[in-house]
Measured scan of single mutants.
Amino acid sequence: MGFKLLSKLLVYLTASIMAIASPLAFSVDSSGEYPTVSEIPVGEVRLYQIADGVWSHIATQSFDGAVYPSNGLIVRDGDELLLIDTAWGAKNTAALLAEIEKQIGLPVTRAVSTHFHDDRVGGVDVLRAAGVATYASPSTRRLAEVEGNEIPTHSLEGLSSSGDAVRFGPVELFYPGAAHSTDNLIVYVPSASVLYGGCAIYELSRTSAGNVADADLAEWPTSIERIQQHYPEAQFVIPGHGLPGGLDLLKHTTNVVKAHTNRSVVE
């Protein structure tokens, strides 16, 4: 069995187990497998329904001669939608809004960016022009300005110390501490036991640490421990890039980060 097929099978099995364990909360999309990078042309966006009122959005972007996937989250909030992270750029984010209108038909009224990198804030200006209120932590807003990236308009308070959590509509926002970046936030959907790890969490097929220019490698494993301790009931975990899975993604990420750190020390 090929690795790609095995990865998709694991996603399907995880979703099936969740649907059985929580039949009222989960209505997993039966329309197909989780979209992969090879299936999404740059400039297009796919939506994948995880649970009743919960979707991931998947886009792709060219970077350094390669094409990478990027995940975000959409959560229903009454007759409105909360968006977590842009679709990595203005063109993708405009396509995301169009796809949401086509498939869901509810307005996106608020959006949260989970850290300051372009795959999370690139497209904020498109959201703002569409009347979406954009939010991020003060740290993310400051770092985005320093980096020359787009800056969300509103500040999220109460997320300055490791372990801080605040309720934001249908989700809980959690600051686990520094990891992929010093400002990275985690998003949890309690009604569906869905954990969105953003770039602080890796997919299972990833074996290298990737972009760690703004990471705190020493603190990252401790931050992941905080996530595990705060959300032990999480059933569906979405990484910032690639295929979702279960809580095993947290341990896998820790292993990859520690291996990278150990290699760096040896070198």
Rank of each mutant, 00 (worst) to 15 (best):
K102W: 14
V42S: 13
V112H: 04
W55H: 04
R128P: 03
H154Q: 15
I40D: 09
T182D: 11
M18K: 05
Q61M: 10
S193F: 07
I151Q: 05
Q235K: 06
K251C: 10
G32I: 06
A87C: 01
A234S: 13
S161G: 14
L13Y: 05
E172A: 04
L96K: 01
W55L: 02
T140F: 04
P190V: 05
S161R: 13
P138R: 09
E147P: 05
D164E: 10
P152V: 04
I50E: 03
L247E: 09
D216G: 10
R142I: 15
A200Y: 04
L159Q: 00
S139I: 14
S191R: 07
Y48R: 08
H115N: 03
T153A: 09
A136E: 03
V28R: 09
S31H: 05
T140N: 03
A136Y: 02
D77H: 10
S70M: 15
L9M: 06
R167T: 06
L247M: 05
P221N: 09
G210C: 05
R167A: 08
A59M: 13
V146H: 10
L9W: 07
G198H: 02
A144K: 04
L247G: 09
G158V: 06
L96D: 01
V132S: 03
S223G: 05
V132I: 15
N149C: 14
F63D: 09
V171C: 03
G148Q: 15
S56I: 05
S191H: 14
D248K: 10
S27R: 11
G131F: 05
A15Y: 14
T93V: 01
F174W: 01
E145I: 11
G105P: 15
V124A: 08
S137T: 06
A178R: 09
V166C: 05
H241T: 00
P35R: 10
E145P: 04
Y135A: 01
E157N: 15
I186W: 01
V265S: 10
T261C: 09
K8W: 06
C199G: 02
S139P: 08
L73G: 09
P170Q: 09
S137A: 12
Y188D: 01
N184D: 03
V189R: 00
H115G: 00
T153V: 13
I104F: 05
A178P: 13
A111T: 14
V11W: 10
A213R: 11
V237N: 01
P221A: 09
P138T: 15
S181T: 11
L249V: 05
I74S: 03
D216L: 14
L82A: 12
Y12K: 15
R226C: 03
C199H: 01
L9G: 12
A95K: 09
I40K: 13
A209K: 14
I151F: 05
V237A: 04
H180T: 00
T109N: 15
S193Y: 08
V166I: 10
G2F: 11
S113A: 15
S137C: 04
R206M: 06
E225P: 02
E157A: 12
W55V: 02
S162E: 13
V266Y: 15
D118K: 09
V171R: 02
I224V: 12
E219M: 15
M1W: 05
S191G: 08
Y12Q: 11
R167H: 05
V212P: 14
S30F: 10
K251R: 08
